[in-house]
Lab assay of single mutants.
Amino acid sequence: IQLFSRPDFLGDHFSFEDDQAALPASFRPQSCRVHGGSWILFDETNFEGDQHILSEGEFPTLTAMGCLASTVLGSLQK
Rank of each mutant, 00 (worst) to 15 (best):
V72W: 14
E17T: 13
V72K: 15
S5P: 06
G49R: 03
G49K: 02
S38M: 12
D43N: 10
I40Q: 01
D8W: 11
T61C: 10
E48N: 14
F4C: 04
P29C: 11
P24W: 02
A25K: 12
G36V: 07
G37K: 00
V72E: 14
E17H: 15
Q51M: 11
G36W: 01
S55C: 10
A64G: 07
I1F: 07
C67Y: 10
I40K: 01
S5T: 09
L10V: 10
L10Q: 14
G57A: 02
F4N: 02
R28M: 11
W39E: 00
G36D: 06
E17A: 11
Q30L: 10
S5D: 12
Q77K: 15
A69E: 15
L76K: 04
L10C: 13
G74Y: 08
P7G: 04
L73A: 09
L68Q: 14
Q77D: 00
W39V: 00
R6A: 12
L41I: 09
M65S: 09
P24H: 00
G57C: 04
L76M: 08
A69T: 13
A22D: 09
D19N: 10
P29M: 06
R33L: 10
D50W: 06
S31R: 03
R28E: 09
A21G: 08
R28G: 02
D18H: 10
D12E: 15
D8K: 08
T63P: 11
A22I: 11
G11K: 07
L10W: 05
H13N: 12
F59K: 06
H35M: 13
S55F: 09
V34Y: 00
P60N: 03
G74A: 11
L62W: 03
L3S: 04
D19H: 06
I53K: 08
P60Q: 02
L62V: 08
E56R: 10
S70Q: 11
Q30A: 09
G49L: 05
L3I: 06
E17C: 12
G37P: 05
L3C: 00
C67R: 07
D12I: 11
Q77G: 07
L41P: 00
F27I: 06
E58Y: 07
R6I: 03
L62P: 09
E58T: 07
H35E: 10
S70T: 14
V72R: 14
F4D: 02
G57R: 04
A21P: 13
S5N: 11
I1H: 01
R6L: 14
D43R: 09
G57N: 07
S26G: 15
D50N: 15
S38H: 12
D18I: 05
L68M: 14
Q20W: 03
L3E: 08
Q30D: 03
D43S: 15
A64W: 01
N46Q: 09
D8Y: 11
L23C: 08
Q51A: 13
G74F: 07
P60K: 05
F47W: 10
Q30S: 06
Q2S: 13
I1V: 05
F14S: 06
G37L: 01
K78N: 06
S26P: 07
N46A: 06
W39N: 05
R6V: 01
F59V: 01
D18R: 09
A25R: 12
A21I: 11
